[in-house]
């Protein structure tokens, strides 16, 4: 299994992850090697094996629907890159 530079660009876009142009070939090679490693799993027959998502096969615990959090907007916004009037600022989305 090998990935091309174009594949890497596509995956990087899906992940919204900036990759240096000069590094793309390098990532393509690394990821291709990793995929070779992962493809080894194909040697094992897993027909009918239930996928394991959680080590203890736990189910999600439920709790009463009551308010447990206090309003900490100001506290949280002190660590934000850019805020104004209690809002998080990002570049204009709609022209």
């Amino acid at each position: 299994m090998s990935l091309t530079a174009n594949d890497v660009k596509k995956i990087a876009h899906l992940a919204r992850l900036g990759i240096d142009q000069q590094q793309i070939e390098h990532y393509a090679q690394d990821l291709s090697n990793l995929l070779d490693l992962m493809t080894q799993m194909g040697q094992r027959d897993t027909q009918g094996v239930a996928p394991m998502a959680h080590p203890l096969d736990q189910v999600q615990r439920l709790r009463p629907d009551v308010v447990s959090e206090t309003d900490q907007r100001q506290n949280f916004q002190t660590i934000a890159p850019q805020t104004e009037a209690g809002l998080y600022l990002v570049p204009k989305v709609i022209e």
């Binding site: 995956i11 899906l14 992940a15 992850l17 990532y27 990821l31 990793l34 995929l35």
Partner: peptide, 17 residues
């Protein structure tokens, strides 16, 4: 892109794929 290092990027790409 500017804040993650190479290994983190590799795993994000691998996982996304």
């Amino acid at each position: 892109g500017e804040a993650f290092g190479a290994e983190v990027k590799r795993r994000i790409l691998m996982g996304t794929y």
